[in-house]
């Protein structure tokens, strides 16, 4: 808990937690924007994430948060601006290439491989780390056995973060809702990311599940030393674990800063509660 009080220090392009200041930022968006026909969904989005930062992206419904995730993973190609992953421009890359550069994500509306067992869901995430070719698979060469065994062990280990190793052979679609959300996080982790993008990880969870999730997100960050960016409507979660928060409204950033700064920002309060609502913090 003490760690969340990290100070933000300015670097070129934005602010990141003090402990990450020595290393280059892992993810950076510069003047990012996208138009759908005549509609500008996101405009002039600037954003920078330190190597082990937990960042938050909040804003009212329709503000463009998920669109930004889709831009960061190259599901959409940006109309303006650019995205740097570890300093490398992702322009023109395919989604799977961006994933292999270190960006993994979960989805707001769960997208698991429902008919496949939990373990296979995680193993598919490890696709990029296994090397054996088609011939290796058909002839069952030693490379197949070695890599499959290693991947299987690693997958079970990842599942154990959320205590799900006993569910390894259950079809993913038959898991309860909360477990499906957790499995999505495990699958994303399996791809070996540098940045984990979580799209509403606590949606539909009860307060105790949310508290557990908070602990787990922190644990993941500490053990894997990766950055996490999350979109969330649950303010307890966002204010509890995020070090830097960006607030989005109508596709534009209206405020950036630490949870305290955001909580007291009049523009944010206005975006959430409307004018003249002042006193109630969000």
């Amino acid at each position: 808990m003490a760690k969340s009080k990290e100070k933000l220090v300015p670097v070129e392009g934005g602010v990141i937690p003090e402990r990450d200041a020595g290393t280059p930022p892992v993810l950076e968006a510069r003047h990012l924007g996208i138009d759908f026909g005549g509609l500008t969904a996101v405009d002039d989005f600037n954003f920078i994430i330190g190597r082990t930062e937990i960042g938050g992206l909040i804003g009212p419904n329709g503000a463009g948060k998920t669109t930004i995730f889709n831009l960061l993973t190259n599901v959409y190609q940006p109309t303006r601006g650019k995205i740097l992953v570890g300093g490398v421009d992702t322009r023109g890359k395919k989604t799977y290439e961006v994933n292999r550069m270190g960006i993994a994500r979960t989805f707001q509306n769960i997208r698991l491989f429902k008919a496949l067992p939990v373990l296979d869901n995680v193993l598919i995430g490890m696709q990029g780390q296994m090397q054996y070719r088609l011939a290796g698979a058909v002839l069952r060469l030693p490379s197949y056995w070695k890599q499959e065994k290693a991947a299987r062990e690693k997958a079970l280990e990842l599942l154990s973060i959320f205590g799900m190793e006993s569910l390894a052979y259950t079809p993913a679609g038959s898991l309860p809702y909360g477990a499906q959300r957790r499995l999505e996080i495990v699958r994303a982790l399996a791809t070996g990311p540098k940045v984990l993008l979580l799209d509403e990880p606590a949606a539909g969870m009860n307060p105790s599940e949310t508290a557990e999730l908070m602990e787990n997100i922190r644990k993941i960050r500490d053990t894997f030393q990766i950055a996490v960016v999350l979109i969330e409507h649950d303010m307890n979660l966002v204010m509890g674990i995020c070090e830097g928060i960006a607030v989005l409204n109508y596709g534009q950033i209206i405020a950036k800063g630490t949870p305290e700064e955001i909580r007291n920002n009049p523009q944010v309060i206005e975006a959430y509660l409307g004018r003249k609502g002042g006193a109630a913090g969000c």
Partner: peptide, 30 residues
């Protein structure tokens, strides 16, 4: 041959595409 392919990372990738193409792509499946 088909069985051996399907029970490997290549087969899993093919099944992942059937199950959810967008998720497969963002899991690093070509």
């Amino acid at each position: 041959v088909i069985h051996l392919v399907m029970k490997s990372r290549h087969g899993r990738a093919i099944l992942a595409i059937r199950e959810n193409e967008i998720a497969a792509e963002s899991c690093g499946v070509r």
